[in-house]
């Protein structure tokens, strides 16, 4: 296994790697940047999750959508991608679109201007997206897809049958590190060079520990975990991570 540390980009803090022959930067924001192809991918935005909880009586701060869009716009501005791919569960539930504020809807429209915007269908937002893109729908910008091929890579929401070059989300991976009497839990990329799972990008998306059984059998060899720090991604050996 190559030594990852010297492959952290000084300027951006991204972990530089390769997947299916394609150069990839795993950015500290949790976004995937396919450098040569100009494709930016993020997963599991779960927009309007805050308002979903509010409707059920827990009044979480309603800023999660704005916060997620802030960070997404930041990445788009920094990188000027030709294509922006949202890897599923972009909306928290099927009514999320209707709870979206006008201002936020405008911002989403803005994300689709001047580039391709592809919405990959997830398990939480399938119904909502179908409705939006169907006849007489709300008119979200961009296009709907169940998966997307980019070079030798396949981008989809949930992990599939294990064909190499797969990039997906859905699992919201988190790495837990216990050192010097402290424990730290951070969202993380997980990859074995054949398959890559993105961390959730949404402000309230939460995470599942990579040592959880849900991750068993997904990787052909012991994967590397890229934990999101403040300004850079830390490459961590899977074996030293703790379960919950």
């Amino acid at each position: 296994m190559s030594v990852w540390r010297d492959r952290v980009c000084e300027r951006s803090g991204a972990l530089l790697t390769e997947l299916g022959g394609v150069s990839a930067a795993l950015r500290p924001s949790g976004a995937l940047w396919l450098t040569e192809l100009g494709v930016l991918a993020v997963g599991d935005l779960h927009l309007e999750k805050g308002s979903a909880y509010a409707a059920r009586g827990q009044l979480l701060p309603p800023f999660d959508t704005a916060d997620t869009l802030n960070r997404l716009e930041g990445e788009v501005e920094a990188l000027s991608p030709t294509a922006l791919v949202l890897l599923g569960d972009s909306f928290h539930d099927r009514r999320a679109l209707s709870r979206l504020s006008r201002a936020d809807a405008e911002r989403i429209a803005g994300l689709g201007r001047g580039r391709s915007l592809i919405w990959i269908v997830g398990n939480h937002d399938e119904e909502g997206l179908q409705a939006a893109f169907g006849t007489g729908g709300d008119g979200l910008p961009g296009e709907l897809a169940s998966e997307l091929s980019v070079g030798a890579l396949t981008l989809r929401h949930e992990p599939g049958d294990g064909a190499p070059g797969e990039v997906c989300g859905h699992l919201h991976p988190c790495a837990k590190v216990v050192r010097a009497g402290r424990s730290v839990r951070r969202r993380a990329f997980v990859t074995d060079g054949l398959r890559l799972i993105l961390p959730a990008f949404g402000a309230y998306a939460g995470g599942l520990n990579v040592r959880d059984a849900a991750f068993n059998g997904l990787f052909a060899r012991t994967p590397l975990v890229g934990a999101l720090g403040d300004r850079r991604v830390y490459a961590l050996p899977f074996g030293t991570l703790s379960g919950d």
Partner: peptide
Amino acid sequence: REPVAGAAADAILNLAADELIAEAM
């Protein structure tokens, strides 16, 4: 005897990351 205080979360991540290097080297 006491946990090393004064270390921000990133420092903890750094400690763990260094182990990978050491292991590799």
